[in-house]
Nucleic acid binder design. Structure first.
Length: 912
RNA sequence: GGGCCUGUAGCGCAGUUGGGAGCGCGCUUCAAUCGCACUGAAGAGGUCGGGGGUUCGAAUCCCCCCAGGUCCA
């Protein structure tokens, strides 16, 4: 009996097997799909090769194999809530795949798959079943080719080769685009694995819905291009795209009845048991929480390693959600303290050899998970406080069921999950309305989500341009590599017009005023990539007055680079000799900003640590923008420190060099690679440093850079702000823009110093001093005014009228603010028996009225609010307040005496 | 991308149909003590996140923006 293989060995055997068959082993792409806004996460092995199928990109190899990190947690196939309930679902998983790009086809794909499973891995041939495509609608040809190939595999049971229809065996990427039939390999795990034994009439079979037969491997044969719902046309190139669920095959080979019982998960599981204080038997009796925690800890670790930190938006939110969900399941098995970082540690241990980024990002992973766990606890505390208020109210109202909307509000607004709400109210003998909750959740989903459909796949017009490209190659105008592209030297280069497009038509001539697309046989215009914007410039005729303004650049398909713009002068025909001229000043500004961005990145690491990973970047001629992972705002000291570091590196005049290296070597060496970029096996490394031992920054980067940091001139940070939870943004300028800006700021300072009549470095102190003086003066003015007004007021107190036993005073007091007026009213009320008063003044060219009434008088039906109302209606306004004190006003200043009389009349009327 | 909640003194918070901006802790000074802690008295400190609008009057109502939280895509 052969010793059982570890998961890591199985993965390696797969790769080795296909490398021996001439395949290039490719690294797993990031979980964040590069340049693909239609996808939240990489969810299949083909994602990193999509552009090859679409014809917009090409690679140096035609056979590849890999183990691809995948996440299936959002979108149409969101089975997050099912993860943990069974033994085969995962949020994160690995997909093993082998690929042919216009190389081998069905014959090899099928026989190699059979060979690996039955010869290398020695699976029982009688237990294997395979399926081929036969159209249930009878429109597409059946894949009898695959059928015949399967039947001749050594040792196969011919009765185990079956046909199925479109649902199972026809693969399509989207509504249009590359597609084709597929063949699946299923394994019979034995009758005891059926989970439908109790269902009457159930028969176990392939593609039945019980768990006895399991799909192992899907071999997709891409041979058609779907133009619309009815039309398929054959592709000129054929592709093989296969995918085998790694956890499944490990489970089969290790003869376990659960993916979660393989050695891939054993370290995590024992860690969880250790924390929960349970044994193996207890775990298997209540397996769900353990599966959830292990799955989610694994997913979160891989996500964070790819730069997806927990947050409140998009991918980041998914990361948060799975961490929080795992924590809740932890609570279910009695774990009270934060624990997820310990599970994550086991994940790193189990996977670091196959995925070194886990070890590299170890501290970031553990920190981010702990941080999120703590934040979740804070959120829960908050939500529970809200809930307690609700419980108090319910007790008063003698309610015992928390209605669905309230439960959902606690969840959606305060982050308190329904189950926790239930746990808490249960202690009071209350219940929750689960149906109401679901209904509210559904409403919320519709209100907040619905509108946005997935974007287009891209490459819609790739076919047309691919056709042009083929044509140009046939004519010998282009080599097989397409347009010669070298953006790293930006001096004008001679070239030839080989294709002109005007109004979407191929034309032989373009004329003054035409908007057109111009293709030359070579170009050095930079094509937007890695955050650096495209170049602009001109294309000029040699020996003619032709002048074309290039406003943007694009690459509709691999090998074809298009200058878009307008003919400013003259005309040109295809075949003309031209000079392709990048706007050099603009390019130089961009280069300065790009190198400055690398220096900024390095300085950030120095100041706040390596967790400040790049999360996005824009390099334009007039500014640069840099987003990075961080949980808190930078202090002004940190910003200054970063600026100083960058500017010091500029003063140090450090050389910037670029070098083409092997991707694995570069990663090994610790070169910074960005999670959302796509890299081939050959990568360009940009280094800033005096020599090999003194490298300040080394990044994988296709952008253009200055050759020495001193060219940057000056670097200034303009702002630091928040983009989303856990992500901050720095905006900065360098070079000419920084010069202009600093000159402007200094001249402003100079003007200020002239106005304040102090030296420039004394401006700050002077402003401080002035502000202080102003504050004091304002206060003194207020005090003096009050003093004067009160003195004045005392004199006017003798104007008090006796209305029966009431002391009434209705006077106008000029030059006081409403606050002082109120103070006087208080004073009058306090110092007089049965006091009733109304005062007026003018503030902001409007009438202000204040009335006051002593408690003893209120009982007799006289309220301050009513007095003010009667007076303010005279001056064209309104008023109100409390019985003892009320305010009002109006706009008609000249009617003030009349208003005061009206108030007096009101009081008299009430008394008599 | 969208829904909801929050933003008031250094910190934690109250502010109930729109009408005097407050509480606790902390801070300053004084008293008491050999000194500290405790205690007592007095006091400083606020663009009520920012900007518009409605109103005689906005922390309070409406709109926009910013920041934080939370949920859905």
């Amino acid at each position: 009996m052969q010793k059982e293989m570890s998961g890591n060995q199985i993965r390696q055997q797969f790769i080795d097997f296909f490398v021996n068959k001439g395949h290039t082993a490719v690294r797993s792409a990031s979980l964040v799909p590069a340049g693909d806004k239609t996808l939240l996460f990489t969810n299949a092995g083909m994602v990193q090769f999509k552009d090859i199928f679409l014809g917009t990109d090409k690679r140096s190899y035609t056979r590849a194999c890999d183990s691809q990190k995948c996440m299936r947690v959002a979108g149409k196939h969101n089975d997050l809530d099912d993860v943990g309930r069974d033994d085969s679902h995962h949020t994160f998983f690995e997909m093993l795949g082998n690929w042919s790009f216009g190389d081998y086809y069905k014959e090899e794909a099928i026989s190699w798959a059979w060979e690996l499973l039955t010869e290398v891995w020695k699976l029982d041939k009688d237990k294997l079943w395979t399926t081929c495509f036969q159209d249930d609608r009878g429109e597409i040809q059946p894949d009898s080719e695959a059928y015949e190939i399967w039947k001749k595999q050594p040792g196969i049971n011919p009765e185990h080769v079956l046909f199925f229809g479109r649902k199972e065996n026809f693969w399509e990427m989207a509504d249009t685009g590359p597609c084709g039939p597929c063949s699946e390999i299923h394994i019979d795990l034995g009758p005891e694995r059926c989970n439908k034994k109790n269902v009457p009439g159930h028969i176990c079979r392939v593609n039945g819905d019980c768990s006895r037969y399991m799909e192992l491997w899907n071999l997709v044969f891409i041979q058609y291009n779907r133009l619309n719902a009815e039309t398929l046309v054959p592709l000129s190139q054929q592709f093989v795209d296969t995918g085998m669920g790694f956890e499944r095959i490990v489970s089969v080979l290790q003869k376990t009845d659960s993916n979660y019982k393989t050695d891939l998960f054993s370290k995590m599981m024992s860690t969880i048991r250790q924390i929960a204080g349970t044994n193996l038997e207890q775990m298997h009796q209540n397996f769900t929480p353990y599966r959830v925690i292990a799955d989610h800890a694994r997913a979160a670790s891989f996500l964070i390693a790819d730069g997806v930190v927990p947050g409140n938006i998009g991918r980041n939110y998914v990361c948060r959600m799975i961490i929080r969900r795992a924590v809740r399941f932890g609570q279910q098995i009695g774990i009270k303290k934060p624990f997820m970082d310990k599970v994550a540690e086991s994940v790193i241990e189990s996977y670091k050899d196959a995925y070194p980024e886990l070890a590299q990002m170890r501290s970031s992973i553990l920190n981010a998970i702990s941080w999120e766990e703590n934040r979740f606890n804070k959120t829960l505390d908050n939500g529970i406080a809200q809930l307690n208020e609700i419980i108090t109210l319910m007790k008063e109202n003698r309610q015992t069921i928390v209605d669905g909307e309230t439960c959902f509000d606690l969840y959606s607004t305060h982050g308190l999950p329904l189950e926790i709400t239930f746990d808490i109210v249960r202690e009071y003998g209350f219940d929750v309305d689960r149906n109401g909750f679901q209904k509210a959740a559904e409403t919320h989903r519709i209100v907040s989500g619905g509108g946005k459909a997935m974007g287009q796949m891209g490459g819609e017009d790739a076919d047309i341009y691919a056709m042009y490209l083929d044509h140009l190659k046939d004519q010998g105008l282009l080599t097989s590599d397409g347009v010669r592209y070298n953006p790293y030297d930006h001096h004008p280069i001679p070239s030839k017009l080989i294709l002109l497009i005007h109004d979407k038509e191929n034309v032989s001539e373009i004329n003054e005023g035409d908007e057109a697309e111009v293709i030359t046989d070579s170009t050095n215009f930079y094509l937007e990539m890695g955050g650096q914007v495209s170049d602009t410039g001109t294309i000029q005729g040699i020996g003619s007055d032709f002048l074309f303004e290039v406003t943007s650049i694009r690459r509709p398909c691999a090998g074809l680079i298009i200058h878009q713009g307008r003919v400013l002068k003259g005309n040109a025909k295809t075949g003309s000799e031209v000079m392709v001229a990048v706007d050099g000043n603009r390019r130089h500004d961009i280069m300065r900003n790009h190198t400055a961005t690398h220096l900024l990145h390095a300085a950030l690491h120095q100041v706040i640590g390596n967790q400040a990973r790049q999360a996005g970047s824009l390099v334009a001629p007039d500014r640069l923008r840099f987003d990075f992972n961080s949980n808190q705002a930078l202090t002004s000291e940190q910003i200054a420190e970063i600026e100083d570091i960058v500017n010091q590196k500029i003063l140090d005049a450090i050389p910037v060099t670029t070098q083409i290296e092997n991707l694995d070597d570069a990663i090994q060496e610790g070169v910074t690679a960005l999670f959302n970029e796509k890299y081939g096996n050959e990568v360009r490394v940009v280094r800033i440093g005096l020599d090999q031992d003194d490298v300040i920054s080394a990044e994988l980067c296709g952008g253009t850079h200055v050759s020495n940091t001193s060219e940057i001139g000056l670097f200034m940070i303009l702002s630091e702000s928040s983009v989303a939870t856990g992500i901050r943004r720095i905006e900065a300028v360098s070079g000419t823009v920084a010069n202009v800006l600093s000159r402007k700021k200094i001249s402003e300072l100079r003007e200020m110093s002239a106005i304040l009549n102090v030296p420039m470095d004394g401006v700050l102190d002077r402003v401080d001093e002035l502000q202080d003086q102003n504050h004091k003066a304002q206060k003194e003015i207020t005090d003096l005014r009050n003093e004067i007004a009160l003195k004045d007021f005392s004199e006017k107190m003798n104007q008090v009228q006796k209305i029966q036993d009431i002391n009434f005073l209705g006077i106008h007091i000029p030059d006081v603010n409403p606050d002082t007026l109120r103070m006087m009213a208080d004073k009058f009320r306090d110092e007089n028996e049965n006091a009733v008063a109304i005062f007026s003044t003018i503030s902001d060219e409007k009438v202000v009225l204040i009335a006051t009434v002593k408690e003893s008088v209120i009982k007799r039906g006289i309220k301050a609010g009513d007095i003010v109302s009667s007076a303010s209606s005279v001056v064209g306004g309104k008023g109100g307040g409390r019985p003892t004190m009320a305010q009002g006003g109006g706009k008609e200043i000249d009617k003030i005496p009349e208003a005061l009389k009206a108030a007096e009349a009101y009081v008299k009327g009430k008394i008599n």
